[in-house]
Design a protein around this nucleic acid. Structure first.
Length: 189
DNA sequence: ACGCTGATGAAG
DNA sequence: TTCATCAGCGTT
């Protein structure tokens, strides 16, 4: 997608990312999935956001310009993939929480150790494992050739559900989780 | 018999 | 966050 796409306000971007296709070219293979679930995290006023306590080596990419990958390691075992959003210095990102697998499925099944389509990428950690995303891609330009987002199906406002974010204690009243209604690949209903 | 769902606890 | 495990329930 273009610069203008990534420059949209974070909550708008989180909605607009639904239905788009995330693509990762890796080892000569094309891995792809449709984004079906996202969460917004916005700057220092959002206590659940990694940027809430200021810039650190870990979250530095969040404070850079939009349109880059912010990938962090969590629970000693998993990775989470985010799209950096907002003006330089804001510290905002959209967490990609679930994908509908489209391409490279046999590789995804191997990595995830299951052939159940719905369990391949229905969660932020699962999706990174299936797509082969880890700290090596942290900071990658999403307008590049190896990791990028492209146009998919149109998702109308009627099909977008907003709900509380998952796994956080603070700011639970902000309905900043978005997912496609009735989609079977979301992490949780 | 089979598979999906939700609840629970453990690991990291 | 994810997995293993188990109970409950509906389908084949």
């Amino acid at each position: 997608m273009s610069d203008a796409f990534y420059q949209q306000p974070t909550l708008t971007l989180a909605r607009k990312l639904l239905g788009k296709i995330l693509i990762h070219r890796q080892d000569g293979e094309l891995l792809a999935g449709r984004i079906v679930e996202t969460e917004a995290y916005i700057g220092t006023d959002d206590p659940a956001c990694h940027a809430a306590r200021g810039r650190t080596p870990r979250n530095a990419v969040m404070f850079g310009p939009p349109g880059y990958a912010y990938i962090y390691f969590i629970y000693g075992k998993y990775f989470c993939f985010n799209v950096v959003s907002g003006e330089r210095g804001l510290g905002a990102a959209v967490l990609i929480r679930a994908l509908e697998p489209l391409s490279g499925i046999s590789t995804m099944e191997k990595r995830r150790n299951t052939d159940k389509r719905r369990q391949l990428a229905s969660g932020p950690g699962k999706l990174c494992q299936a797509m082969g995303l880890d700290r090596k891609m942290n900071g990658a330009d999403l307008r590049g050739d190896d990791l990028f987002i492209t146009r998919g199906e149109k998702v109308t406002a009627q099909k977008i559900i907003s709900a509380p974010r998952i796994g956080i204690r603070l700011a639970a009243d902000r309905l900043w989780r978005f997912y496609i209604r009735d989609n079977i690949y979301v992490s949780r209903k």
